[in-house]
């Protein structure tokens, strides 16, 4: 594992020494803790409020001067929205598209990333930089003609169409993660395997692929998350069908506040779990592509 992805900074020793204990020890220490607590509370507050509203009655949620402490807890919103009639179809679309995007992204990006990773230094940096620069295109400049074309081809409201659209955003990111993965696999291993008489494809499958498996998994999870979170391509391409982000958006537009909060929490749960799971492998660079503004 450590061969493929950088270790998190938390495992290193902090390089900045703690403030000199003899100077202003007390107040600076207390100020530090107060600041840490305020920041922690502010960061958790939106999630808490969403959850609180999702278990409130509509009357309580819409009352003026809402309080942070729930007066009465009800699971009625959850029971109503979790019925298959409401969430079944969006959930199916979201899951099918997210898994298809993850699988297709790895199938397309991994072979290319391997070849890129074996390029000489100069061209390799050039290609990797090019992959990153695709981020400068605003998504709407791509999505607008894509939507027009996909409607002409009958790909609107289909899982295939949305998967193809999500791949546009995911492929550069997945390729980038995978180039980093393959780069650190020593070439000597491949040469040894070639000497043993394995063909090139045999070497790739038996030697390179197993070593790259953790990096491939990380790339696939990021692709999955990217697709699961997407609103932009879904709103362009899905007119009659819904995905989970899309139904959340429509409820935010026209639904009740308790329903929006409930859908938001449903949408967030898998993402939060996967992100906390991925914490160890989150390098700042990966996130540059994974998080959109």
């Amino acid at each position: 594992m450590s061969a493929t992805v950088a270790r998190m900074p938390e495992e290193r020793q902090p390089t900045i020494p703690p403030a000199d204990p003899e100077h202003q020890f007390h107040w600076s220490h207390i100020a530090f803790w107060i600041l840490a607590i305020i920041i922690g509370v502010l960061l958790l507050l939106p999630i808490y409020v969403l959850f609180k509203v999702s278990v409130s009655t509509l009357a309580e949620a819409t009352a003026p001067r809402p309080s942070f402490i729930p007066r009465e807890i009800t699971w009625a919103n959850w029971q109503r929205l979790l019925s298959w009639d409401i969430i079944g179809s969006p959930l199916q679309h979201s899951l099918i598209v997210a898994f298809s995007t993850a699988i297709a992204a790895v199938l397309i990006a991994a072979p290319a990333a391997y070849v890129i990773s074996r390029l000489p230094r100069g061209p390799r940096y050039f290609v990797v930089l090019g992959l990153l620069l695709t981020r400068m295109f605003p998504e709407v400049i791509i999505a607008t003609p894509i939507a027009a074309n996909f409607f002409a081809w009958g790909l609107n409201d289909t899982n295939l169409g949305l998967t193809m659209a999500h791949l546009i955003r995911t492929l550069p990111l997945a390729s980038w993660i995978l180039v980093g993965t393959f780069e650190v696999i020593p070439r000597e291993l491949e040469e040894a395997s070639a000497v043993d008489g394995s063909g090139r494809i045999g070497t790739l499958v038996r030697v390179v692929l197993p070593l790259a498996a953790p990096g491939i998994a990380v790339a696939a999870i990021f692709a999955w998350l990217d697709s699961w979170n997407d609103l932009l391509y879904a709103i362009y391409l899905f007119l009659t069908e819904r995905t989970l982000p899309l139904i959340t958006y429509y409820y935010a537009n026209r639904g009740t506040v308790t329903d929006v909060a409930t859908f938001s929490i449903i949408l967030t749960i898998p993402v939060l779990l996967l992100t906390l799971f991925l914490q160890r492998w989150i390098r700042s660079g990966y996130l540059a592509g994974a998080v959109k503004g």
């Binding site: 920041i39 960061l43 939106p46 969403l50 982000p245 506040v257 938001s264």
Partner: peptide, 19 residues
């Protein structure tokens, strides 16, 4: 705790701010 907002879809960040 600092990393928690990363695990929240951007859409949900906007929805949360509605409240």
């Amino acid at each position: 705790i600092v990393l928690v907002p990363l695990g929240v879809p951007t859409l949900v960040a906007g929805a949360a701010m509605l409240y």
